Simulated scan of single mutants.
Amino acid sequence: MPEHTPLASRRGLLFGAAAVSAGAFLTGCTSNESDDDKEAAADTRPAADDKPGKPVTIGYAGPLADHGWLNAINDQAKNRAGKYSDVTLEVTEGSNDTAQQIGQIETLINKKVDVLVVLPADGKALTQVGLKAMRAGIPVVNLDRVFNTPQAYRCWVGGDNYGMGLNAGHYIGEKLKGKADARVVELAGLDNLELTKQRTQGFDDALKNYPNIKKVARQAADFTVESGQAKMAQLLQAQSKFDALWNHDDDQGVGALRAIEQAGRDDFLMVGGAGALSAFQAIKQDNGVLKATVLYPPTMAASAIDLARALGQGKGIGGLAEYEIPASITLYSAVVDKDNVDQYMSTGFK
Rank of each mutant, 00 (worst) to 15 (best):
A168M: 04
N247P: 02
F147R: 14
V129P: 04
A230I: 01
E194K: 13
E324K: 15
R11E: 04
A244S: 09
A310V: 05
P297R: 14
R265S: 03
N167W: 10
N247H: 09
V91D: 02
L277W: 07
R10S: 15
A125R: 15
T299R: 05
S95G: 09
W246A: 04
L277D: 08
S21C: 06
A22M: 07
Y153S: 14
V141R: 05
Y296F: 15
V341N: 13
A18T: 03
V20A: 11
G288K: 00
E322Y: 06
L13M: 10
G12Q: 03
A40G: 09
F147W: 14
V113Q: 11
M270H: 03
A334Q: 12
N340G: 08
T27A: 04
Q198K: 10
G169M: 07
F268N: 15
I317G: 05
R154E: 05
Y332H: 10
D37Q: 13
F147C: 06
A188D: 10
Q313F: 10
R10D: 13
L143C: 00
P6S: 00
I325A: 11
D37F: 10
S95N: 00
N247S: 11
Y171G: 10
D86M: 08
D267I: 01
P63K: 14
I105D: 08
G158L: 07
I260K: 06
A65F: 02
K338N: 13
T98I: 12
V91G: 13
N110L: 12
T107I: 11
L295S: 11
A41T: 08
A125F: 01
V336Q: 04
A133Y: 08
T5D: 06
Q313R: 06
L7G: 07
L269A: 02
Q237R: 12
G158H: 00
F268E: 12
V20L: 01
Y171N: 02
N96E: 05
L245H: 09
S328N: 10
D50A: 07
V341T: 00
G62Q: 05
D267L: 04
A168E: 06
K284R: 06
A180W: 10
A48T: 03
V294E: 05
A61E: 00
A282I: 05
D205M: 08
T44K: 13
E90N: 07
V294I: 10
L269K: 02
A206R: 02
A244D: 05
N32L: 03
M300Y: 11
A19M: 07
L126N: 14
D49M: 13
L70K: 14
S303C: 11
K132L: 10
G319E: 01
T98R: 07
G28A: 15
G319L: 03
C29D: 09
G103R: 12
A304M: 05
T127P: 04
E93W: 02
